[in-house]
Design a protein around this nucleic acid. Sequence first.
DNA 1: TATCTCGGACTGTCAACCAG
DNA 2: TGGTTGACAGTCCGAGATAC
Length: 635
Amino acid sequence: MSLSLPCNPCTSSPQLLDISISANTNGDNNGDDNDNESSKKRPAKPHVKTACVNCKKAHLACDLTRPCKRCVSSDKADTCHDIQHKKRGRPKLRGMKPMHCHLPSTFTMIQSASTSANYVQQHSNSSNYQKPTMTLFLSMELCCARVSDESFDFLGLYPQEFSHRSLYDFIIPGNNGTVSRIHRSLLDNAVTFSSGDKINNDTTHHHQQQQFQQTSKARLLPPTQRTTAEMFIALPPYQLATIANGSLTLKETITFITSDKSRHQPLDARFYLGGGSGADLIRSDSLHHLYIVCILTVPDTNASLASPSEPQSLLNNLSFTNNRLDEPLYSSSNTLALTTASLPEIQPIAFAQDQLQLSPLELESASILDFEQNDPQQLDMKRPANDTTGTAAMESTTSWTKPYTTPSPPPSPSSPISLPLSISSSPYRENLGNATCPSSDVSLHGIKEVETLKKETAEVAKPTAAATATATATATATATTQAPFNSSSKQLSSTSYSIRHHHQRQTHQQPHQLYYQSMLSSRLSVEAQAFASSTKMLTAPAMSTPTYNVTKSRFHHRHTPPNTQLYPLSSPSSSSLSSSSSSSSSSSSSLSSSPSSSVCRTSSVCHTTATSMSSSAPSSLYTLSSINTKNIHLL
DNA sequence: TATCTCGGACTGTCAACCAG
DNA sequence: TGGTTGACAGTCCGAGATAC
């Protein structure tokens, strides 16, 4: 008769493990006549406290070692790691907790503590206003690596519930496009920032600008941090929240799905590239440290009415005080010292938003325009200042501030917020064209300066673009390709088109598209998946995932349609997931599906990056078969 | 035959509830 | 306050499916 020993966590210790096993052995020896009973009852083998991701996926026994024996035997040692568990036990009654109550949490406390270190508390009385913020640290694939405790207050979801899952899982399907575009913008921001690692600080401003233009070019983004990266756990939140040198900050109101799936919660979201682990967009060798930070706040109707004369935080390092994240980032008085003419030296000029490029993303690309047109006040982009890693070139940006798109009424002429600097500074914004500029909160002065800058940039761009047709994306391309969308630049259209088409023939790809090809996660946006599928990795750079020998794969036989060339990202879905897949993304379905199993599968996909998938073919089997790519086949 | 998938049993954890 | 209950999450057995 076997002994049914409780699987106490203490049994994880080797000593107790041995005791329990021996007890079981004794029990079996004493009662071998009850085979039927013993066969029904579980053996007393204690469960490990945490199974590795591979064993969990396979529903197989794991052990305490890492890599576990099973992973070693199955050649999956490189992907053998623990996953973050959800909170066990009966959940607290969610209805008992008032929404958005600001309970002290470790995360918040740490973040608050960071205020003194990384934030500038410009006005003392602003500290009286405490607004809870929810922070998400995401991989460059928008998979959640770490989430602050406020997730429960905001969405009724525990931080663990975000683990390794895509951000798309938590937003309404209608916002997929918005998030996708933000994602794309961040990727472009990362990929097309100046590749000139060294800019001579002694050069004159004009020379510096030219040098910046010349040294700027598209570059390849190396494999970045996965959601399981140690840094997400090891680094304190305030450090992770540090913005990467050169990153843009994108603001958008995104509607999230709460724990009560029938209820949605709109939140103001700010996205920027995280530099807490040393990522610096100026230094190409640090790009693999990149990740994405998303800060969420509850939309504040009063914020839009905030008077510019109210105490506002100065955009310094992180550009705002963390307890004022909900506020529009009005510039402080010293913002006026900045002029658009000074912007190019620090802006990521190598944006190539070739809107009319005849790529598979044509419609999506054009939607960038819609993005702003449809809701011009939603997108907020500001120049970041940086943290301690700021270079000399970026030091001039430390006072960058940018309150641009808030629902607030246009500032008064006496307001220090007279110039929407981010518009002129951001090539992304520039790319949107004047038609995309919100009319309500942009002063004429600002528009004129924007157009002046565009013209200047375009003039510099023309010869450069013609000479560098082989470049994937350049700032000059930005200046030319945005022309069709810019009514004020029509005089450049003809030239721009010729240059653009020539450029298009050479590359066909934008920076973020290169990234889509390199970071082959099913949790990427539909756009990314579609692009990676359509381009079939033919032009993928050196960082591309090694091709997977699908001839050994089961799903190749199961699911591969005729004449379909398989690539990791575009691998067909498994039969188990195909039923729940949707064209928008697999995210929505996974959220609404059954808890444990679906989460398990979802997280497994999130773990899958180019590196993991390329690690070994057998280990890719599961992932590949789990990827939902129903929409891929529709392309 | 080997390997993989996955339903579901079993068990741990924890908040809510309740009796003393 | 301590015990009980219930809800939920994690582990992994084992049956069935699939590949070779």
